[in-house]
């Protein structure tokens, strides 16, 4: 009886030590899988917005992700619905579609059709209009807009400006 209670105590004591060790190990393992500081600090991308042509999709790169920049023509601007207008990034009087070029479904890069003025994702058949809003499911929302700040005729990706904050608060982008 005395022996078994002693063993019981030893078992519990070991359980406590092992439990603390297990939790600590899991914590260390989780942190080891985290993105490295060098990855997280990956910088900012500055775009000179005067260099783009109307209705020509240019793909830039920010944090390893493709960034779509599409300068809208007067005709495109005129045809926009309010939903499409809200997504406009306006720099120096010109209207642009600026978005992360990854389908919000599962992350493929949609292709732009200059004539139809829309995007088609080949992976699962999702479509977006020229403002980046969803035209056909499965994508659950329009193309995400990266954090940006307007600086004269330049656009800084990765910094948060008032226009971006407004878009985020009104739920246009995540």
């Amino acid at each position: 009886m005395r022996d078994s209670s002693r063993r019981g105590f030893m078992g519990k004591a070991f359980g406590a030590v092992a439990g603390v060790g297990a939790v600590a190990s899991l914590f260390a393992m989780k942190k080891t899988w985290d993105p490295l500081p060098s990855v997280k600090a990956a910088g900012f991308t500055t775009l000179d917005m005067s260099a783009y042509n109307e209705n020509e999709l240019i793909t830039e790169k920010w944090r390893g992700k493709p960034i779509f920049v599409l300068k809208k023509s007067a005709e495109m601007i005129a045809s926009q619905t309010p939903v499409q207008q809200e997504r406009d990034v306006i720099v120096d009087g010109s209207h642009y579609m600026v978005a992360i070029g990854l389908c919000t479904h599962l992350g493929c890069i949609p292709a732009y059709n200059t004539d139809k003025k829309d995007f088609l994702c080949a992976c699962h058949g999702g479509q977006f209009d020229f403002s980046g809003a969803v035209a056909k499911v499965p994508p659950p929302r329009g193309l995400d807009i990266p954090p940006f700040k307007v600086d004269g005729n330049k656009l800084v990706l990765g910094e948060v400006g008032p226009e971006y904050t407004k878009m985020k608060e009104s739920g246009i982008t995540l």
Partner: peptide, 29 residues
């Protein structure tokens, strides 16, 4: 692209667990 698409499954759709996806990848992409 298989790596991109399959790891994106872990964002859980509208749950937007992008942190989990980045954790699995160890990077944004």
């Amino acid at each position: 692209w298989a790596g991109m698409v399959i790891t994106n499954l872990f964002s859980g759709g509208s749950l937007h667990a992008d942190g989990l996806v980045e954790w699995i990848r160890g990077d944004y992409v």
